[in-house]
Computed example of a mutant assay.
Amino acid sequence: MPFPILRTPFVVLSEIISILEPNETVTASFCSKNFKCLLKNHFRQKVHLTWEAYMVDVENVGKVTMAEPGIEERVAVLLAVHVSKLNETTHKIVEIYGYKTSFSSGHLILYFEDQVSGSKWIVNYVTDLFNIAVRGLAIGRSSTWAVDWINERQEKPLCRFGLLTPTNNDSKADESVDNVLKNVRASDYIAIDEYVSDNYRFNGKLGPVKILILWRNGHWVTCDNLMNFDAMDIHIGDSRLTISDLNPFLRHWRAGGSPRLHYLEVCSENGRVFEEIFDDDLEIVRTNEEGRYRISCVKTMVIRNCYRIRRMDGIGALVKCYRQRFYMIVQHEKASN
């Protein structure tokens, strides 16, 4: 005999809902319109929901995942898949809200004729159910539309953003990266892991953001770009910058530019070695000091036998060239010395 859950006192129901995982909550919301309304009312009465929503849209698959703040592992709660991926091997197909639906690996999959509409639908469904905003976005090259859509649908900026490595290489790469760099807003983390042509150039500002990572193909980054990156941590891979290019940046920083910078790491392209040849006017001196910067909760960067440079206001930084890498650690805590 079915359990009459909707007749259960709200206090008891609230406790039951509180122990559900996000994917279980989303699945339960599809059972009936009345139960969906019950869930929505529950989350609108809660003072604070610790779970955060993330949107993933890559190559004909849209996904909403959720996680606790500070936890990297995310739970998939709802998927939007192009109907072309629906075949005779897909089992237990049912129709919900007019869409073909299946259940796999603890979450629902909805099939759409139009992938963009499907991705938007599942994001709107989950965020409305939990009464939350999208905090993270990870997309592929064909999904850069999502950046503008997120900016338009919510006032609160993203916390994390990632442009993922594509499975193919075509002429749309430059356009995709340019669109993202000019329009993305994220407070904590921006990572670009995309290919661009040798001729690609970016003219604009990026940030403010805490961490900026260009995993690969950072060959397009110029000294002017570096000056216009408003970030606390900057990591650039496959760079073509030389010390001659970085000297103007150090001059810019010394005069008060990039005031939020804490850490800069530049990895050269094709194993090219950085040479420690700094301009005399920078007044860089050798030091036996040790520089430490905590990159993550599990990794701390340590540099020794480096150089010291001071900003006009007295704030110091340690810089070091080690084979194919250039490091800069700004010591903001010593500003009062």
Rank of each mutant, 00 (worst) to 15 (best):
V116I: 13
R141F: 09
P157Y: 09
L86N: 00
E95V: 14
K156Q: 12
L137E: 04
D128I: 10
I109A: 11
S143K: 08
Y99L: 12
E152Y: 08
T127I: 07
K92N: 15
H107T: 09
D114N: 12
F130R: 06
W145F: 06
S143Q: 12
Y99V: 07
T144M: 03
A138K: 14
I96T: 06
D114G: 04
N131Y: 11
V116S: 06
N151V: 00
S104W: 14
Y99R: 06
K120R: 10
T90R: 04
S143W: 07
S143F: 06
R135V: 07
Y97V: 11
R135D: 09
L137T: 07
P157T: 07
W121A: 13
L158W: 01
S119I: 07
Y99E: 07
R153M: 13
K120N: 04
H107C: 11
L86Q: 00
K156S: 11
T101Q: 06
V126M: 02
I150L: 10
G106W: 02
F130H: 07
E88S: 13
A138D: 15
T144N: 01
D114Y: 09
G118Q: 05
S117T: 11
G106Y: 00
Y125L: 04
T89F: 14
R135A: 11
I132F: 02
T144L: 02
E155V: 09
K92I: 12
V126N: 03
S117C: 12
K92L: 13
V126T: 02
E88F: 14
K100Y: 08
Q115N: 10
A146N: 03
N151I: 02
R153S: 11
S104N: 15
